[in-house]
């Protein structure tokens, strides 16, 4: 019994780290601008494909592709925010939502045209390795790497928000846009940079996801829902909440799969998420 569940629990926790990386950028944008970026998952998959192209061109390790993918995705975010989203921010809730929805469809279909619907993966030596703890329990190395990077990323973000001018400016703009402008913060520019940073996290998530699982042009939707789940379960107030949200979602999926079969793995996650939405739409760990 214990042996049956030890492996899914371990995998669930580690997978939760990956989910946290997927969700952290969307949580940031949601927290700052109160907009839901429906293209977040697709932009992440875009980064996976970007990494794939770099690997096939230069034949380098997926991690090294981040040197190119991170700056490229930062500019993608900056452009998306300043060209598409900033202009409709003041026009109510629907326009930004629908703009990002349109962007999501454009990215999916562009990827489909360029890369065909075939499953792709970022080949690496880690994804097949496992560390055996006992005869029954092993740690998939790539999951462990995902989790460590997630924790590191969250620590870096924490320092960034606390210690840097930019981080404080972003927090100020999210607390009170008017007041932030009064003290000389250009909120539109801050929003652009914030989206750029969110896309940096999407680039990291995209490479990790690509190394851990296969991906297709339409996988973005699945990760959008995971990112949203991380936000809803973890709440918007703390970076730790993002990690906890990811871990709960990961655990729910893998333990659920143990009970009802792997076919229902995603379904269990979705149902947990719906339950949370109904009971505590502000998130489990939200303060109010």
């Amino acid at each position: 019994m214990v042996q049956d569940f030890a492996q899914p629990i371990l995998n669930g926790i580690l997978l939760g780290g990956l989910y946290a990386v997927v969700g952290i950028g969307m949580a940031m944008i949601f927290g700052i601008m109160r907009i839901t970026n429906l293209a977040h998952g697709d932009l992440m998959v875009l980064a996976s494909y970007l990494s794939l192209v770099i690997i096939s061109g230069l034949g380098i390790n997926p991690f090294v592709t981040l040197v190119i993918a991170i700056p490229v995705m930062f500019f993608v975010g900056l452009i998306v925010q300043s060209a598409l989203i900033n202009r409709v921010l003041k026009k109510g809730n629907e326009p930004p939502l629908l703009v990002t929805f349109g962007l999501s469809i454009i990215i999916q279909n562009a990827l489909l045209l360029i890369f065909t619907p075939d499953a792709k993966m970022l080949m690496n030596s880690l994804s097949t390795k496992s560390i055996f703890l006992t005869n029954y329990l092993s740690v998939p190395v790539i999951y462990l790497v995902d989790f460590i990077i997630a924790v590191a990323l969250i620590l870096v973000f924490n320092q960034f928000y606390q210690k840097t001018y930019l981080g404080r400016a972003i927090r100020a703009a999210s607390d009170d846009e008017g007041a932030a402008e009064l003290v000389g913060i250009n909120t539109r520019r801050i929003y652009g940079i914030a989206m750029g940073i969110a896309m940096v996290t999407a680039a990291i998530a995209g490479v990790l996801v690509g190394m851990t699982f296969t991906f297709y042009p339409f996988t973005g939707t699945q990760y959008l829902i995971i990112a949203f789940g991380v936000i809803v379960i973890g709440g918007l107030n703390s970076l730790l909440g993002v990690l906890v949200g990811g871990v709960i979602l990961g655990l729910a999926q893998l333990i659920g799969a143990e009970f009802v079969g792997t076919g229902y793995q995603l379904l269990v996650g979705y149902i947990i998420l719906l339950l949370v939405l109904v009971v505590r739409p502000q998130g489990i760990f939200a303060k109010n």
């Binding site: 829902i225 949203f228 719906l274 939405l277």
Partner: peptide, 28 residues
């Protein structure tokens, strides 16, 4: 009953989630 408790973007993604859940349910 549950879905109308969600507002704005939550409603949007909540409805999407229900549809996705049905999709997985039907395919299993």
């Amino acid at each position: 009953a549950p879905i109308f408790r969600m507002r704005e973007a939550y409603f949007t993604i909540g409805t999407w989630l229900v549809a996705e859940a049905l999709k997985i349910f039907f395919s299993n």
